[in-house]
């Protein structure tokens, strides 16, 4: 069974990666936000810089803020972004 999710990147992340969204097929061992970060960090140097743990990155699933241990389900909209600075 293929677990496809949509991922969005915002602000500094979007700029570093040079794109804002992609569809990702989740490997079977990727079930949480923390595991997805590790998976993304393995893509290369830019990804390792962003998702390797040195930078503070927040995540949302289906438009709600979540922690690292949040479970990702097939069809979810996941987003990664820096700490917010509105107001």
């Amino acid at each position: 069974m293929i677990h496809l999710i949509k991922v969005f990147y915002f602000a500094r992340l979007k700029e570093s990666l040079n794109y804002s969204t992609e569809d990702i097929e989740l490997p079977v061992n990727v079930k949480t936000i923390a595991q997805l970060k590790v998976h993304l960090a393995e893509r290369g140097e830019t990804w390792a810089d962003l998702f390797g743990g040195q930078q503070s990155i927040r995540a949302a699933i289906n438009h709600g803020l979540v922690d690292n241990d949040a479970i990702i389900n097939s069809g979810d909209e996941v987003a990664f972004f820096p700490p917010v600075t509105g107001g």
């Binding site: 915002f10 500094r12 949302a60 803020l65 820096p82 917010v84 600075t85 107001g87």
Partner: peptide, 14 residues
């Protein structure tokens, strides 16, 4: 409301 907006609403300033 303002205190929560500052930390929970997805806005980014450049």
């Amino acid at each position: 409301i303002m205190d929560h907006l500052k930390t929970d609403a997805p806005f980014w300033k450049k």
